[in-house]
Design a protein around this nucleic acid. Structure first.
Length: 586
DNA sequence: GCCGTTTTCGGCCCGACTGTTTTCAGTCG
């Protein structure tokens, strides 16, 4: 039982309570608790302890007791009882846009519809349109939504939609009537998965901007179009929302639509505490409410010209979008202790890239040239090792040949260097795919799990820690093996891995490939606290994928990391000594 | 169900759009 499973149960409770028509604030309490638990940095074993549980914000006596029961017995009576009141598949109806708890309840009680398949049947038979509160339009919309759902899962890798997003943003920016254009939402916060794109545009010509947006060549269909808000679907399937505001409203709209929702709630509350009301358009005086002491007016409302002014008005340092998850950014911003986050420009090199020697698509020379054109001072080549047969892994002679090729090529460079490494498989028992004598010939070693994903959590954790204990292992790659939207992480005790990395001096990778983004940003504050060093690697199998480092920077920033936390921000002169520090330390 | 620097009771963010209504409920973000 892990945190994500428990959070999932709490989420499901919230949804089921919604179906029952429970008190909305009680429902929100469960949602808040789920979210709070997910982002909490503590250890799973502490979840048996109710006192620790109640210290997590949003978790009080009642929910703490439920989590305890869940962790100790593996099930929760309250949840099981609740669940038995409805057919199991009914929850899938919530994934259809336009359907919420009230409508699902009506469909269930009046038409006995409790699955998407049954809904499709009822729509085809025309029974949905006859329900009070529904109509022909709603019925047709649901039909389309069901068809759409099979076509697009509705979730996208950040990397899969970034190009479309930037194109649309640039085209809007090029329009003379656009004063400011920004993509807010989870895209601006650099979440690993985005469900939609929120465009915020400041303009004095809303109709023109709306038209440009709706008629853009990337747009496949228009979902809604009004004077200030429009929604379209792009060719990739992602939904884009456009908000058109005035120049004066822009900083408020940008802030509001960047979110997260949880961040916004705290912002609004801070405004309320100062006697103001904050919405997506302005900071205004709070409406007078009798007997409401916290809504005392506290003087003149500060002028806000840009987002930073808004934070200043609420007595906060500017909070970078990546940190706006209500995971401690308010405490830090008010104490003036926000870190200066790492930036793409800080990167000096990277490790963990492949060439045609194993399963890459470009030669050593091509990869080196691509790295130099990105302004990097060094590039580490780490091919697969012999056990990764599916990836054309190198045996010892082929590895030695590549090391020789790298050493030879290095003589041709000025102010640039290739490092010779390997992506060495961690075998089932935690031993490595090459002997230490072979590893010692390399500049560095990346260790990864590529097989036996189904070990128990204890075995997998032991396996990885054993590998990290090898003095030649410089860094641990994609520590959880997840493939976003495709494969869950294998069972592994991440805090234990972090602890071992700190003890052994092993760096942990942020694998910047958009399908991985592993280790997840939620773990980095803990890793940083333990003194673990980060390395951002693209795991590039072709030259153009080196640019995915940009997504890794997003993860590092979300994880509160600074330049000093990321090893590949070190210049060429300093990185070499760091690569071999572990094998020479006593 | 959670929370608390005037609170242990009474709040809990709130505006836009759509579709079904004929003044508003539901959904969404």
């Amino acid at each position: 039982m892990d945190k994500a499973t428990i959070a999932d149960v709490l989420e499901k409770i919230a949804t089921l309570l919604e179906l029952k028509g429970e008190n909305p604030f009680k429902i929100r309490a469960y949602t808040n608790a789920a979210r709070s638990l997910e982002t909490w940095g503590g250890n799973i074993s502490d979840l048996r302890d109710e006192e620790t549980l109640e210290k997590i914000p949003g978790i009080g006596k009642a929910i703490a007791a439920k989590i305890k029961e869940l962790v100790e017995t593996g099930s929760l009576k309250f949840f099981e009882d609740l669940r038995s009141e409805f057919p199991a598949e009914i929850l899938e109806l919530f994934s259809l846009p336009g359907l919420g708890a009230k409508k699902i309840k009506a469909l269930y009680e009046q038409l006995q519809v409790s699955s998407i398949a049954q809904l499709q049947e009822a729509c085809t038979a025309g029974r949905v349109a006859e329900l009070p509160g529904f109509g022909k339009t709603t019925q047709d919309k649901l039909c389309r939504a069901i068809a759409e759902r099979t076509k697009h899962a509705g979730s996208f890798h950040l990397g899969a939609i970034a190009a479309e997003a930037e194109t649309l943003q640039n085209d809007l920016r090029a329009h003379p009537d656009a004063l400011h254009v920004c993509i807010g939402g989870s895209y601006r916060r650099r979440k690993e998965i985005v469900r939609d794109l929120d465009f915020i545009v400041a303009t004095s010509a809303p109709a023109e901007i709306t038209a440009i947006f709706a008629q853009h060549p990337l747009v496949e269909s228009i979902i809604a179009q009004g004077p200030t808000k429009s929604s379209v679907r792009l060719r990739s399937g992602i939904q884009c929302d456009l908000r058109v505001v005035t120049g004066a409203e822009y900083p408020f709209a940008l802030n509001y639509f960047t979110g997260s929702k949880e961040h916004n709630i705290v912002m609004r509350n801070r405004a309320l505490q100062r006697g103001w009301t904050l919405n997506e358009y302005r900071l205004g005086p709070a409406p007078p409410v009798a007997d409401s002491p916290k809504k005392k007016t506290t003087g003149k409302i500060p002028e806000v010209r840009e987002e930073a002014d808004l934070y200043r008005a609420l007595e906060l340092d500017y909070i970078p979008p990546e940190l706006r998850e209500n995971c401690g950014e308010f405490e830090a911003a008010s104490a003036k202790t926000l870190p200066r986050l790492v930036e793409a420009e800080n990167l000096r090199g990277t490790f963990h890239c492949h060439t045609t020697a194993s399963d890459g698509h470009n030669s050593l020379e091509e990869m080196a040239a691509a790295a130099q054109s990105l302004g990097l001072q060094y590039l580490g080549i780490a091919e697969h090792s012999r056990s990764s047969i599916q990836a054309n892994g190198l045996d010892v002679p082929r590895l030695r040949a590549q090391v020789a090729a790298i050493r030879k090529l290095n003589r041709e460079f000025e102010n640039f260097r290739l490092f010779a490494g390997v992506e060495c498989d961690i075998l089932r028992d935690g031993s490595l795919d090459f002997d230490d004598e072979v590893l010692a010939e390399l500049d560095y070693v990346v260790a990864s799990v590529h097989s036996a994903f189904t070990l128990s959590e204890a075995d997998m954790t032991r396996r990885i820690i054993r590998a990290m204990s090898n003095p030649f292992v410089t860094m641990l790659a994609h520590p959880t093996g997840r493939l976003l939207l495709k494969r869950d992480p294998y069972a592994v005790d991440v805090p234990a891995i972090i602890e071992a990395a700190a003890e052994t001096g092993t760096w942990i990778e942020i694998n910047a490939a958009p399908k991985r983004l592993d280790l997840d940003w939620r773990w980095w504050p803990l890793a940083k606290e333990k003194g673990v060093k980060c390395v951002i690697n693209p795991d590039a199998h072709r030259t153009e994928r080196l640019q995915e480092l940009w997504f890794g920077i997003g993860v590092a920033r979300k994880g509160w990391l600074t330049k000093a936390d990321v090893m590949n921000c070190l210049p060429l002169g300093k990185i070499e000594g760091e690569l071999t520090r572990k094998r020479t330390r006593k």
